[in-house]
């Protein structure tokens, strides 16, 4: 087990005393097997108990420890020390307001996610006695990758359009809408289109593609958004040029 002395440069912000954030550097003896989250825990336990950050599972499942590591959106629990030099800079997730230190406000994302109705809306009510909704493996495969989203918001931290236009619904919310639209058991697409086929919905996206590059679960939100654009465009042409063709 080799040990390295890492200079961990962390953006600090205390809303009670600070008017703006500042960097504070901690010298942390790190094991090479550690991830950045371990280094932060070391600081919290041994050097500075006032440091605030979110974390829970330490295994890329809960999606709590998203932050900018050397400017790149990462889960701190998935960022291995051995992939970095002895100087590591840690910032709160970009594009989000800072509450305290590495803790950011998530309300905006939660509201946007809820607005796309990210749950099954059955085509018709069916009594339980009528049995389950059946689905073939091919139908499952259509949306399965999107179910892997852990709502870590790294895609929002990577998306410049979200940073520039905060009203933008953003990658994860729209791909979650797409996930349910693609589900053979679902009939709620028309309701979701009202929210996502808008100027601040999918049409704010310009396919930078950064969201998919940083996704720790290898979901492809950028692809989902382009597919939503294609489908919405077909809708538009049907609606306006072929009004006799009812969906």
């Amino acid at each position: 087990m080799s040990e390295r002395q890492i200079q961990l440069e962390v953006l600090r912000y205390n809303p009670e005393t600070d008017s703006e954030p500042r960097y504070q550097t901690y010298s942390v003896p790190c094991l090479n097997e550690w991830v950045v989250l371990d280094a932060l825990n070391y600081v919290k336990d041994n050097l500075d108990p006032t440091l605030s950050y979110r974390w829970s599972c330490h295994m890329a499942v809960c999606g709590s420890c998203g932050m900018m590591i050397n400017g790149e959106p990462k889960l701190a629990c998935k960022a291995f020390i051995h992939e970095y030099t002895d100087q590591i800079r840690v910032d709160p997730m970009a594009n989000f307001p800072i509450e305290r230190d590495l803790v950011t406000s998530v309300e905006d994302f939660i509201a946007k996610l809820a607005s796309v109705k990210p749950y099954l809306i059955p085509k018709e009510d069916k009594p339980i006695s009528a049995g389950e909704f059946k689905q073939t493996p091919a139908e499952l495969k259509k949306f399965k990758q999107y179910t892997l989203c852990i709502n870590c918001m790294l895609c929002y931290a990577a998306c410049p359009q979200y940073g520039l236009v905060p009203e933008f619904l953003g990658p994860a919310a729209i791909s979650m809408a797409h996930r349910y639209n693609q589900d053979s058991r679902d009939g709620g697409r028309d309701q979701r289109q009202e929210v996502i086929a808008t100027d601040t919905g999918v049409w704010e996206c310009s396919f930078v593609g950064a969201c998919s590059e940083v996704c720790p679960k290898h979901v492809d939100p950028a692809g989902a958004l382009q597919q939503v654009k294609v489908a919405s465009t077909i809708d538009w042409y049907k609606e306006h040029l072929m009004p006799w063709m009812k969906k």
Binding site: Q193, E194, V195, A197, T198, D199, T200, G201, W203, K229, V230, S232, T233, D235, W236, Y237, H240
Partner: peptide, 15 residues
Amino acid sequence: MAKSNKPIFWGLFAA
């Protein structure tokens, strides 16, 4: 929120 009219132009953009 009204649905966008960008699809007219986006369709041409993509094609």
